[in-house]
């Protein structure tokens, strides 16, 4: 299946050559955890996961054409 991934802030620094959203191919029924490992993202502890505008946990099972935002947590302003 194909999903569309958008990385935020410091995560983009790990993938400077990419344009977002980036298209990623994964096996069916892959979770966000699998996506993170596939991409080689080192620190996933303080990430927020948003799929199609809804926040989810890292065990969320992705579906074809899902749009996922991987966001280093931040708040306030």
């Amino acid at each position: 299946m194909v999903i569309f991934v958008t990385l935020h802030t410091v995560l983009r620094d790990q993938f400077p050559e990419y344009v977002f959203p980036m298209k990623v191919s994964l096996d069916e029924f892959s979770t966000i955890e699998v996506l993170i490992n596939t991409m080689g993202i080192l620190d996933s502890q303080s990430l927020i996961f948003v799929v199609n505008g809804i926040n989810v946990e890292c065990n969320y099972i992705l579906k074809n054409f899902d749009k996922i935002d991987l966001i280093p947590a931040i708040s306030g302003g």
């Binding site: 958008t6 410091v10 931040i74 302003g77």
Partner: peptide, 15 residues
Amino acid sequence: EYGTSANVRMVNAFG
């Protein structure tokens, strides 16, 4: 590195 403006795209992602 990014300050609180990092919220712009995050909050947009949440709609």
